[in-house]
Nucleic acid binder design. Structure first.
Lengths: 334, 334
DNA sequence: TTGTAGGCGTTATCAT
DNA sequence: ATGATAACGCCTACAA
């Protein structure tokens, strides 16, 4: 069993001191050409690789960031994760993946775990159920909220223009002549949903249309069957809406399922727009219109923000806010 | 700036020695009732949390495992990741997410990174482009291959019964009367594809049907547009196949797109089965038949395997192999 | 049962 | 420019 080769082995092999080896490793100070050569030679020869653990203990930095979100299985979040991973990798950082599953306890547990592991930053899509713990954490550590955010917490945010995107989508439906536009939402206390709903409402009001409470459907979380039931009940009302605006991809998929089940024609019987675009929306007939979000870019920006904050440690890290634009993708469903 | 509270602070606060504190923390030895009480009290009072880093340096274990796969954005892999995360969390382990993007260099880089970070194990969906490095790594560390695997590497494997699943799917098509069944595959050197293709071939041969090379389409990787082009060219041949079997979800989606574009009716003009099931297959009309894989379970089993191997460290870790069943989900597309 | 001392593999401080 | 020395925070012989 060959013991792991350490910095000490390199120092003896190269006839220098551990400090010198460390210096060529980190480039923290100037080292003479020949010493450097000798060290590099020894490193190659012994196939030495520095221990991140030991380094972390000393430097109090781990080159890792926690990614804490609802469910990686949701295409939106997996695209965010991909973007974050890509950018993190570029900075030689690694990502710790955590799913909250919308559970407060699990989020809290992970928040602590990430702190205990001394991640250099946390990217959080908050459940909304742990206000003060997040608050506390944000005080001590760089943390950026993505997608959703906690109003009361002073931490950076990377999100999209939810209100604007929803407004544009609703306006499109209105322009197409729709007057009874159902909106399907979930968790109205969540910022994304609140903002999207506001965009919907603004478009209606601006157009002088009434906001009919019967057309505002609050579906339960994470339960596709129950969601479909609720969507079905709206779609089978005598005064059925002529258009539907689903405020996230899950609700949108449920709506598509129900509409197909009811043998309703899109867009003749009912028009449809979904907030958040999915790959398959372009594959099916009719193709589905959507408010497209730059999910990958959200991940990228979140990591960049974290990098900047980690850099500026000590300075009272000002909470930045990045709002990315959405894009209204008009397909056959309207 | 309040310094971090360490085990030493607890020892002085509770009037014991650091070792005793460590003992109550790890439960590695018996501690008298009153001492334990005092320590726990101090821990609570000072809100002490042990440093994972320091502990790792000493114990050479990090309670973390690397998850290295092609692309978390692929629903199959994100489900695997979810399962792995779930099970890891249950054991108090965390997951480091790495995407290879099918790139050899990136896979290699991550392999080294994970070793440098001293993860306790690696779950790998190999690109197939780094044989000996994986070999080497498997010699030193617990590593389990998921989905695909390297034939020459002695490491555990968690996969599905690709051959059987593909055989069942092809047989179904044959039973429905199809004689010209196109198969769409990618990367024929990859084990999953090889095995699935073998299942397809076996079904044809058993039924006394010819294996027409013109119906075996090799599409390029990761390029949806080009994939669709190739699928289109098969589907517009004069002697167009009456059924299509797509060997993974990406190719399946491309096929669905093309079929819709060509205004072909499913299953009248062409029947379709996809290896790997996607949520939307059930939402669209006609719904799409699929060979469903227990993706979540693959992740779970991979972590369990790793746990067992880490436990049995020292013992010549025998390479286990877990083969999960697939399920043929028959919907309207056949 | 408890405490002391040493070390895990680095980096940082301080001389030289 | 280089090297000795002391941490970083914890665990673990070993001793008591």
């Amino acid at each position: 069993m060959s013991r792991k080769v350490t910095i000490h082995d390199i120092s003896t092999e190269s006839g220098t001191s551990p400090s010198t080896v460390s210096r060529v490793l980190t480039g923290s100070a100037v080292v003479s050409e020949d010493k450097r050569k000798a060290v590099e030679e020894a490193i190659r020869k012994l196939n030495y690789r520095p221990s991140h653990i030991a380094r972390s203990l000393k430097t109090r930095t781990t080159q890792s960031i926690g990614l804490l979100l609802n469910d990686i299985t949701n295409p939106f979040y997996s695209a965010v994760a991909r973007g974050a991973e890509d950018e993190a990798n570029r900075h030689n950082f690694s990502l710790i993946l955590c799913n909250t599953n919308e559970e407060a306890a699990r989020e809290l547990q992970y928040l602590h775990l990430l702190e205990d592991k001394q991640v250099d930053g946390i990217i959080l899509g908050p459940t909304g159920k742990n206000i003060s713990p997040v608050q506390d954490l944000a005080y001590r550590h760089p943390i950026v909220q993505i997608d959703r955010y906690l109003d009361s917490v002073e931490a950076s945010i990377v999100k999209v223009d939810n209100e604007g995107g929803a407004y544009a989508a609703t306006r499109l439906l209105i322009e197409k002549g729709h007057q009874r536009i159902a909106v399907l939402r979930w968790g109205k206390q969540i910022t994304t949903m609140k903002e999207r709903y506001e965009g919907y409402e603004r478009a209606l009001v601006e157009a002088g249309l009434p906001v009919d409470p019967a057309l505002v459907v609050d579906v339960p979380a994470l339960d596709i069957a129950q969601t479909m039931d609720m969507v079905r009940s709206v779609m089978t009302r005598p005064d059925r809406p002529t258009a539907v605006f689903a405020l996230n991809n899950q609700i949108g998929s449920a709506a598509i399922g129900v509409i197909h089940q009811l043998r309703l024609q899109i867009p003749e019987d009912v028009a449809l727009i979904v907030f958040d675009d999915l790959d398959y929306f372009t594959l099916i007939r009719p193709s589905i219109s959507a408010v497209s979000q730059p999910a990958f870019e959200i991940g990228v920006q979140a990591v960049r923000l974290l990098m900047r904050q980690a850099q500026a440690r000590g300075a009272p890290h000002s909470a930045e806010q990045i709002i990315l634009p959405t894009e209204l993708v008009i397909r056959e469903s309207v």
